[in-house]
Simulated assay, not measured.
Amino acid sequence: MFGLPIGWIVAAVDIALIVHAARSGRFMPWGFIILFLPGIGALAYVVVEIVPGWLGSTGAQRAGRSVVAALDPERRYRDAKDELAIVDTIANRSALAEACLALGKFDEARGHYAAILAGPQGDEPGFMLGRARAEFGLGETALAVTTLDELKARWPGYRSPDGHLLYARALEGAGRDEEALAAYEAVGVYYPGAEPRVRQAELLARLGRADEARALADEVARGLKRAPAHVRRAQSQWLAAAEKLARR
Rank of each mutant, 00 (worst) to 15 (best):
residue 50 I to C: 11
residue 32 F to E: 08
residue 49 E to A: 00
residue 43 L to Q: 07
residue 58 T to H: 08
residue 53 G to Y: 04
residue 32 F to P: 02
residue 58 T to P: 09
residue 33 I to Q: 04
residue 30 W to N: 01
residue 54 W to A: 12
residue 47 V to R: 13
residue 32 F to V: 13
residue 29 P to Q: 12
residue 49 E to M: 08
residue 25 G to I: 01
residue 39 G to F: 10
residue 62 R to M: 12
residue 45 Y to N: 08
residue 34 I to D: 00
residue 25 G to Q: 03
residue 47 V to E: 04
residue 38 P to T: 11
residue 53 G to P: 01
residue 59 G to K: 11
residue 46 V to F: 12
residue 54 W to Y: 13
residue 51 V to G: 00
residue 32 F to Y: 10
residue 41 G to E: 04
residue 57 S to I: 09
residue 56 G to C: 10
residue 39 G to Y: 09
residue 37 L to M: 15
residue 55 L to I: 02
residue 48 V to D: 01
residue 56 G to S: 10
residue 46 V to E: 00
residue 48 V to T: 09
residue 26 R to P: 04
residue 54 W to P: 07
residue 28 M to R: 14
residue 58 T to W: 11
residue 53 G to L: 10
residue 37 L to R: 15
residue 46 V to H: 06
residue 40 I to G: 06
residue 30 W to H: 02
residue 40 I to W: 09
residue 37 L to I: 06
residue 47 V to P: 03
residue 24 S to W: 02
residue 48 V to H: 05
residue 42 A to C: 07
residue 37 L to T: 15
residue 62 R to G: 07
residue 24 S to H: 03
residue 35 L to A: 15
residue 40 I to P: 05
residue 60 A to G: 08
residue 33 I to G: 06
residue 37 L to Q: 15
residue 33 I to A: 00
residue 50 I to Q: 05
residue 44 A to Y: 05
residue 29 P to V: 08
residue 31 G to F: 01
residue 33 I to Y: 04
residue 34 I to S: 02
residue 39 G to M: 11
residue 59 G to D: 09
